[in-house]
């Protein structure tokens, strides 16, 4: 309960600060650079949850604990959600700064492939009836998908040049305004907190549903 209240307050502070405290970066039309405080955390949470999902899948394959699979499934689902949000907010930003919602910028290309990969992950889950087999296959697919991600993030964007703002908004860049940096890190923290809360909620739902599953009928035939 305390966690929820703290999270809400913190999130409210961050949103207010993002509008009033931090200063807009130069080089972008009007106040649009404030998107940094909302769009980038989505992408960060999406990446984080895919990482968690992959690790949890590996743990499940090694130890066969159902809990690890719940974590993998929940993280993949949330990652998918945040990935969609990052895509939508990114394309609105693209509209205001580059003039079009979609122009197959390398970043946009890779995020679409990422969305497809995780769409396919859910397809694996829905295609296999036997719960144990479903978990193993989903885990295997998750790891395979994760292996191809570096190809997307590092290989594809370098072939063509990107319009995606990098240096002006990169927190590691020394030119970043200290106020902006403070709010940005606070925002990352706030969205990560939100993500953890949603993740735990989802895992609890899956656990309860798992307890309800009839034990004796759990091995349904898949190809008879």
């Amino acid at each position: 309960m305390i966690y929820k209240i703290l999270l809400t307050v913190w999130m409210a502070i961050i949103i207010v600060a993002a509008f009033l405290y931090a200063e807009a970066a130069t080089g972008f039309p009007g106040e649009t650079s404030r998107i940094l405080f909302f769009h980038v955390p989505q992408a960060w949470v999406a990446t984080l949850s895919f990482l968690i999902s992959m690790i949890a899948s590996a743990v499940y394959l090694a130890k066969r604990r159902v809990k690890a699979d719940y974590l993998a499934q929940s993280a993949a689902e949330l990652g998918f959600l945040f990935c969609i949000l990052a895509t939508i907010t990114g394309s609105i930003f693209a509209k205001t700064t580059w003039g079009a919602f979609w122009n197959w910028d390398p970043r946009q290309t890779s995020i679409v492939i990422l969305l497809m990969i995780y769409g396919a992950y859910f397809a694996v889950r829905s295609a296999v009836n036997d719960p144990d087999r479903r978990r193993v296959f989903a885990g295997v697919y998750s790891i395979l998908a994760f292996v191809t991600v570096p190809f997307l993030v590092f290989v594809v964007p370098r072939i063509t040049t990107s319009l995606h703002p990098e240096n002006t908004m990169n927190p590691a860049h020394p030119g970043m305004d200290p106020k902006t940096l403070k709010v940005f890190l606070g925002s990352l923290f706030a969205y990560t907190g939100l993500f953890v809360w949603m993740l735990r909620l989802k895992i609890r739902v899956l656990t309860i549903e798992g307890l309800r599953e009839p034990k004796f009928m759990s091995r349904k035939p898949d190809n008879e």
């Binding site: 106040e31 649009t32 404030r34 998107i35 909302f38 769009h39 949330l78 949000l85 930003f93 205001t96």
Partner: peptide, 24 residues
């Protein structure tokens, strides 16, 4: 200029999260 845009972005994010929580 651009403030409505950032608010729109916020709205999209919270609508998405709210939708997910609603389904859950």
């Amino acid at each position: 200029e651009g403030l409505t845009f950032v608010m729109g972005v916020n709205l999209v994010i919270w609508c998405g999260i709210a939708f997910y929580l609603f389904v859950l």
